[in-house]
């Protein structure tokens, strides 16, 4: 019926008041007659995340789980079981929290498993550039998971979050290896106790 309207905003100038008037009159008449159920709003961030998740292509060493069920993709966990390097045999779980304006803002990622690692501190903070200073909206969840996996195959002492572990890795890789083993098996490294994660 209204297809004849040319879709330019100035064509609408002056129409709105008439619409408001009609609507307000209807509203007065229709008082108490709202039968519409409340509708959940899906944010643009959720939709983009839906795309990321449905396209996940994880290596065998990584798996994902959704503790709140299939309809909450904004909070999930990723488990990594490195098949190479110092951390071979360990199982490490990360929590992901996604904001409603994802991918404008990077996911918040923390390591749930206490780990002896130069780039992960004992509270689970992770030093991975793409999670903070180098995050770009073109990156996705897959990229982050690969980035995390990479931290286990190639820990580096140049971006330390756990300074002691970084120093040992730099100065004495043999000792670093045995410290990692001891931590993963469940035990003390220095003053810190690590729970078993093998």
């Amino acid at each position: 019926m209204r297809d004849f309207y040319v879709l330019q905003s100035d064509r609408y100038t002056g129409i709105m008041i008439k619409l408001f008037k009609v609507k307000e009159k209807q509203r007065e008449l229709a008082e108490n007659s709202n039968g519409k159920p409340p509708v959940k709003k899906q944010s643009a961030g959720e939709l983009r995340l839906h795309k990321d998740i449905s396209e996940l292509n994880l290596p065998k060493t990584c798996s994902i789980s959704f503790p709140n069920g299939k309809d909450d993709l904004m909070n999930f966990e990723v488990t990594i079981r490195p098949d190479d390097g110092y951390y071979l045999g360990g199982t490490f779980t990360f929590t992901f929290q996604i904001s409603s304006i994802y991918p404008h803002e990077a996911p918040k990622v923390k390591c749930k498993t206490k780990v002896y690692h130069p780039n992960i501190d004992l509270d689970g903070n992770v030093c991975l550039n793409i999670l903070r200073e180098d995050w770009k909206p073109v990156l996705n969840i897959n990229t982050i998971i690969y980035g995390l996996y990479h931290l286990f195959t190639e820990p580096n002492h140049e971006d330390p979050l756990n300074r002691e572990a970084a120093a040992v890795l730099r100065d004495n890789p043999k000792m670093f290896e045995s410290n990692v083993r001891r931590a993963m098996a469940g035990g003390y490294v220095g003053q810190t106790f690590f729970t078993r994660c093998i």
Partner: peptide, 22 residues
């Protein structure tokens, strides 16, 4: 295609855990 409606994921092609649930 994976399909979502008002925050409910009707079908997910991946990852396997969600495919199974949907």
């Amino acid at each position: 295609a994976s399909v979502t409606h008002r925050g409910k994921n009707l079908y997910m092609q991946a990852p396997p855990v969600l495919e199974e649930m949907t």
